[in-house]
Computed example of a mutant assay.
Amino acid sequence: MSNSAAPAIALLAGKASKRKRLAGELQGFGYRVVFAGDPDELDAERLQAVQTDAWLLELAEESLLADWLLEHSPVPVLLGAGEIPDAACEDYPRWQRRLLGKLLPLLGEPPQVQNLAPVVVPQLRHDAPSCVWVLGASLGGPAAVKRFLDQLPADLPIAFIYAQHIDAGFEQQLPQILGRQNDWRIINCQPGAHLHRGDVLVAPVSRSLRFGNEGVVQLSDEPWPGLYRPSIGAVLDETLRTFGAATGAIIFSGMGEDGVEACGRLRQQGIEVWTQDEQSAACATMPKAVQDAGFSHREGSPETLAAALRDWLQQEWPLAL
Rank of each mutant, 00 (worst) to 15 (best):
S2N: 12
A5Q: 11
A5N: 08
A5G: 01
A5H: 09
P7Q: 01
A10Q: 09
L11T: 05
L12P: 05
L12N: 05
G14K: 14
K15F: 14
K15D: 14
K18P: 02
R19E: 06
R21K: 15
R21W: 11
Q27P: 00
Q27I: 10
V33I: 07
F35S: 09
F35Q: 03
L42Q: 15
E45H: 12
E45S: 12
V50M: 08
Q51D: 04
T52L: 03
D53C: 05
E58N: 10
L59Y: 14
S63Y: 13
S63K: 14
L64Q: 13
L65N: 08
A66K: 15
L70Y: 04
P76Y: 13
L78I: 12
L78A: 11
L79W: 09
G82C: 10
G82V: 07
D86A: 12
D86F: 04
E90N: 00
D91H: 10
W95P: 04
W95A: 01
R97V: 00
L100N: 02
G101T: 00
K102M: 11
L103I: 06
L104N: 02
L104T: 12
P105H: 11
L106Q: 13
G108H: 01
P110H: 00
V113W: 05
L116R: 15
L116M: 14
A117I: 00
P118W: 10
V120E: 03
P122A: 05
R125Y: 02
D127G: 06
V132P: 06
V132F: 04
L135Q: 06
G136V: 01
G136E: 00
S138R: 07
S138P: 02
P142L: 12
A144V: 07
F148M: 09
L149V: 11
D150V: 06
D150F: 11
Q151V: 09
A154E: 04
I158D: 02
A159E: 03
D167K: 13
L178G: 08
R180T: 13
W184G: 08
I186Y: 10
G192S: 01
L201R: 13
V202A: 01
A203E: 02
A203H: 09
P204M: 05
R207C: 05
R207N: 07
S208C: 11
L209G: 06
R210T: 01
R210A: 12
R210E: 04
G212T: 04
G212Y: 10
E214Q: 13
E214A: 10
V217R: 15
S220M: 13
D221V: 05
D221P: 07
P225T: 03
L227I: 07
Y228N: 06
G233Q: 06
E238A: 07
R241N: 06
T242W: 05
A245W: 01
A245Q: 14
A245K: 05
I250G: 02
M255P: 02
G259D: 00
R267A: 13
Q269A: 09
Q276R: 08
Q279A: 15
S280G: 10
S280F: 11
T285M: 10
D292T: 09
S296N: 01
H297M: 09
E303S: 15
A306L: 11
L309S: 06
L309E: 03
L309D: 02
L313P: 10
W317R: 10
A320N: 15
L321F: 05
